[in-house]
Design a protein around this nucleic acid. Structure first.
Lengths: 199, 199
DNA sequence: CTAGAATGCCGAACACTGTTCGATAAATAA
DNA sequence: TTATTTATCGAACAGTGTTCGGCATTCTAG
């Protein structure tokens, strides 16, 4: 645990207050229309002052998307670990999708950035939404809820599951934004169908 | 067939030449960094002149994304209709994914716009990539390659399939951009596993 | 407690951006 | 030929992200 001087504390507080304003504005106008000058205005700074806390606009968006990732993780962690692996997997998926639907701007921001960052730096933190699913898949394999196709490992299954979950979220945010249908049901069916294919 | 005056013809040619430059620039710098002024420069127009052909930057992007959709459709139409429905579905998926991988900028543009347009206007053209899959699914149902879960119709299956295909494309473009793996194989497995769940 | 350094913050400027307006030249229509 | 539509541009507007120089404030060493 790194102890912090009062100065560092203030610094982080200012940082966070800037991020909060940015998050609010993104929720209102989408992340593509975020204006640093507007952030500065509402956070009571001059535009230049922001650069004391973030080295660029991209940097602000990155910081924000990191926090969003954490929110997502918290939500997914609420899925009881006690569930049978099979159920747990579908639950994780549904939580992910629900988050995407109810916070579309956040979700889109998160995804439009993971494109660039990941490549260079960190190898996806060990406690990430993705790894949560991976663990559930491993458990399902161990308990024989899932039978691996030949040549496949837990990683490939997780990748596929992730694609479905992610794909559904995207679809519902874009092409199907104002379609009327019982998506909760359909999405569940999609997940279950895939899992059924693994038996 | 609407006949066109020489004027209209010239007009459309100019339009297309502008789109071509825009497409080229997008391929080089991504669609988020497209500058109208740069387009104008390379297309030998003043910035203002572009507004004779498109009413806004968004409009240019829309026009472009429409053309990209057509390219995609052409590619997918090359999948022989004679294939058994089951095979045909996986082929369509693979073509879609391959297109996404080999033209990431185009693919991303196409998707970031379908978010807004569709909702208000056209009910997804009858000859669209999506409908190609829908037809293949219907054929698969008729030939009993696919058995519908109770309560499900061809639409729901197609929606799920589309989510997988779309999700895989997205994943590979973002999170997994420089991972090394035999994705062609894994993707095929994902599709087949889902289809297997429908038997 | 004081001198020097680091930090916080701002105004002004730079080099862009998309878009509109008014004017001018060219092509078409009457 | 005249009138009208189309093509084109230069200049300007309002906005953007970012950098720089300078002034206060706050911390840190001596």
């Amino acid at each position: 645990m790194t102890t912090q001087s009062p100065r560092q504390k203030r610094h982080e507080k200012s940082q966070q207050s800037i991020l909060d304003v940015a998050a609010k504005l993104i929720g209102e106008h989408g992340y593509e229309n975020l204006s640093l000058r507007e952030v500065a205005r509402q956070a009571d700074y001059s535009p230049a002052a922001l650069y004391e806390y973030f080295k660029s606009k991209e940097d602000i968006l990155f910081a924000l998307s990191e926090q969003i990732g954490l929110q997502m993780l918290e939500l997914m962690n609420e899925a009881p670990a006690s569930l049978p692996p099979y159920e747990r997997i579908t639950q994780l998926g549904q939580i992910y999708i629900r988050f995407a639907i109810s916070h579309p701007e956040k979700f889109q921001l998160m995804n439009s950035l993971s494109s660039r960052r990941r490549s260079l730096a960190e190898p996806i933190s060990a406690t990430s939404p993705y790894n949560l699913v991976l663990d559930a898949v491993k458990a399902a394999i161990k308990s024989s809820d899932i039978k691996l196709p030949r040549g496949a490992h837990a990683e490939e299954i997780t990748y596929s599951l992730w694609a479905i979950i992610h794909g559904i979220s995207m679809l519902r945010l874009t092409y199907l934004r104002d379609f009327q249908a019982d998506f909760e049901k359909i999405d569940l069916m999609a997940l279950k169908t895939f899992l059924k294919g693994l038996q």
